[in-house]
Amino acid sequence: MSDYENKPINIAIIGLGGQGVITLAKLIANTSFMLGKKVCYNEMHGLSQRGGSVQSFIRINEADNPLFAATDVDFIIGLEKLETLRYLYLAREAKPKVLVSNRYDIRTTVDLGLEMFPESDDIDQEILKYSSDVYIFDALGFENSVKFKLKPVNVAVFSILTTFPELGIPSGKAEDFVTEYLGRNLILKQINKKAFKEGPKWLKKVE
């Protein structure tokens, strides 16, 4: 961990409205802050709640400015494949580490025949072209395993992030934060707890 202490770690979280992008950013930032680190983050608001693209940028070891150039990104966390590719394409020079969910939503414009839609496998190939350090989170498998209407994908991803030492988020602290701050009632707390435990099981490194 000490190797990374001074250089800011630039993280981009990319997804669609309603997936919990901003909550995930809050989880990462607040846990880092509780551990005594400098941290700041940005939320992109707009039509996010309505299925538009949502991005959040976090910098650990930097106090004031959460916004960074795409070519300076260290870690991309993508909760949806196509949005991830869109950002990764801009960031391709940085050769970032990529954690991408296998979730892939059909866009309305494509459904109605207005735009061409790439095949899921093509997107995978394209992602691998721009980064050699790719991890895939089986969000579909995870969601199917959750027997509840709400699928806390962001909590599962947060749990996965504790296994990346460069982020310096110990699993214990992270879990404390999830149970303490997330979830309005007991059922939600239980679901989050389960998601936190199960999350890392659905991760696969692309070799």
């Binding site: 039509l47 538009g52 949005e83 869109r86 394409y89 866009r107 735009e115």
Partner: peptide, 18 residues
Amino acid sequence: AHVFGREDQLIPRTLPRL
């Protein structure tokens, strides 16, 4: 962004919706 090495294949837009 143009991807897949082809000028005609764009990443489809993500339009906001109700």
